[in-house]
Design a binder for these strands. Structure first.
Lengths: 132, 132
DNA sequence: ATAATTGCAAATTTTTTGCAGGTTC
DNA sequence: GAACCTGCAAAAAATTTGCAATTAT
């Protein structure tokens, strides 16, 4: 369980109840769209507006608190900022699971003439549940 | 230079001038957004409507002629359907370059309990031009 | 006390839809 | 000639903006 207040302040953002609520939902669900954040956060804070979510999603990205996970054929999801990792995406049930990015994989991606900053890997397929 | 008429027909789509024009622009630019397709195609076909582009982008994805390339912080781009490959994305000039996905990299991504269908890798960094 | 943030409503932008007329096979 | 496709205009959906009241530090 992350301390969202410290997380926000250490990234030069004021710790409002709206922001900590948004971060809590993101961490609980793992990867979540703006609409689903709204639906979820409204339960505890019925006055929290969609405009506030939009503004904060943009701001918290700029301040390196969260990152966008662009998705094929649907709206982007968002996750707490972490080290580079792999997303396993089940094409049947929609599950998204983080997977450790091995040094071995990283080594195979090193190229001359390209200064690599960030690796984004999505693997689409079937999770174990959906294979049966 | 691809034969767009054959490409469309072999994927059960009628070969209209609108579709071949859209495919031509996509192939020329490599990776392009809907708005940029519209701006480009309008030069030769001023009556071609944005609604037609939206309809055809959806349809041609469903028929495996093109694929979406979802982008961080901007609208998706589209490319002709090809085998799995890597995208090198320059964070300075915006260049997107395809790179061969080696068997070596693919091997490091094989997991138990996940039936892998498709690999999507984006590498963000600086191209050789922008490093100087 | 100051500067930043919120929520609302309105504006803007993006995407989808319905349909009459035209095109492809 | 049947089924499909296009372009237009209108509708719907998504995102951004301006601003007065509120909140965090």
């Amino acid at each position: 369980m992350t301390d969202y207040i410290t997380l926000l302040k250490s990234n030069d953002l004021k710790a409002t109840i709206q922001r900590t609520s948004i971060l809590k939902v993101i961490e609980e669900v793992g990867h979540i769209s703006i609409d689903d954040i709204y639906e979820s956060v409204k339960e505890q804070h019925p006055t929290l507006s969609l405009a506030t979510i939009y503004k904060n999603i943009i701001l918290m990205q700029q301040h390196n608190v969260i990152i966008e996970v662009p998705m094929n054929g649907e709206k982007s999801k968002y996750e707490l900022k972490k080290n580079d990792h792999i997303h396993l995406i089940c094409q049947s049930c929609g599950m998204i699971q983080d997977q450790h990015l091995t040094a071995q994989t990283e080594q195979t991606l090193v190229l001359e003439n390209f200064k690599l900053n960030r690796v984004q890997i999505n693997l689409y397929g079937l999770c174990s549940e959906c294979q049966s």
